[in-house]
């Protein structure tokens, strides 16, 4: 392959122009309306969870919020990325862009970065909304307690409520939720450089997401060398080798019940996610650089 084009000739300004444009595209496609769904979910369940007496309603609300954040950021990344390349190719806008002194590497990076921007902003908005709703509910609960409890029992009860609301130690967990969504977006980008239809891209990406969450179980069984049939072993080994272990990014649930996430561990997981993003992106570039437009 006499690839004379240097894929690493980078201009930050061009990448920024492309990612800003992608971001603008997604915003003007009213992608943010998707987040309204999240808002409805949180506010709705905030009203709904009042009636639970058996489990701390704030804890339920918090678990709803964190779970929804994880799913929503993933879906948002997936749906935005899946259509990015096919649309530009179909509309032939890609020709006009690549006829400028823009390398395919810059183009791809700009697009992905635009999605990352959108994801970052979305997760930020979701966190703010979530923290806000929890804060309001917290005030309500405390006011309620103050009415019903004697003063000496109040501090302990208030502390229990505080522990069940939004706390700063959740932030690293939320950062890993964002990272997982970015990883899945990069994977989707890779799939969309290979695929000829975005339906294929979306379906495959969903399957990878699901498998990614059970990969750990399969991998550990394989590494432990259980007594499975050879065929099953090969299957599981293939699964372990090919799919990312997405469960490693789900630590926020434990943080929410008070488990401390050591800084080193956070950075290890973050570095691991970063490495995945890098590898998937380079593979996407490899495919895209030789693809017939």
């Amino acid at each position: 392959m006499n690839q004379a084009q240097n894929p690493f000739s980078l201009s930050l300004r061009r990448i920024w122009a492309l990612s800003h444009n992608t971001f603008l595209e997604l915003v003007r496609l009213k992608v943010f309306y998707f987040l309204l769904l999240f808002a409805f979910l949180i506010i709705g369940s905030s009203l709904f969870t009042v009636q639970f007496s058996f489990q701390n309603p704030l804890q339920v609300l918090k678990d709803v919020g964190l779970g929804a954040m994880s799913i929503f950021s993933w879906l948002l990344g997936l749906l935005c990325t899946a259509n990015l390349l096919p649309k530009d190719m179909e509309d032939r806008t890609l020709y006009t862009i690549l006829a400028k002194p823009v390398s395919r590497f810059e183009y791809l990076l700009g697009k992905l970065y635009g999605v990352f921007l959108l994801l970052g902003l979305s997760v930020l908005l979701m966190s703010l909304l979530f923290a806000g709703v929890l804060a309001i509910r917290e005030q309500q609960e405390i006011a309620e307690l103050a009415r019903n409890l004697s003063p000496e029992n109040l501090p302990a009860a208030v502390a229990e409520i505080r522990a069940a609301t939004f706390q700063m130690n959740l932030l690293p967990g939320i950062a890993l939720i964002l990272l997982k969504a970015m990883l899945c977006s990069t994977l989707t980008l890779l799939l969309s450089t290979l695929a000829s239809s975005s339906v294929f891209t979306v379906l495959t990406s969903v399957v990878v997401y699901l498998i990614g969450h059970v990969q750990g179980i399969a991998r550990e069984a394989w590494l432990a060398g259980g007594q499975a049939s050879p065929l099953l072993k090969v299957l599981v080994a293939g699964m372990a080798l090919a799919f990312p272990d997405l469960q490693l990014f789900n630590v926020v649930d434990e943080i929410a019940v008070g488990t401390a996430l050591p800084a080193l561990l956070f950075w290890q997981v973050a570095g691991f996610g970063g490495m995945y993003i890098l590898v998937y992106f380079l593979l996407a570039q490899l495919v895209f650089s030789t693809r017939e437009l």
């Binding site: 991998r219 272990d245 490693l248 434990e254 488990t259 401390a260 997981v269 691991f272």
Partner: peptide, 23 residues
């Protein structure tokens, strides 16, 4: 890449379990 990352994942999972995650 898979064979490298599988080992890394195995290690990370052990580290997380040690810290009280993924249990």
């Amino acid at each position: 890449f898979g064979s490298f990352k599988t080992a890394a994942e195995h290690h990370l999972l052990a580290a997380q379990r040690g810290a009280g995650f993924q249990l």
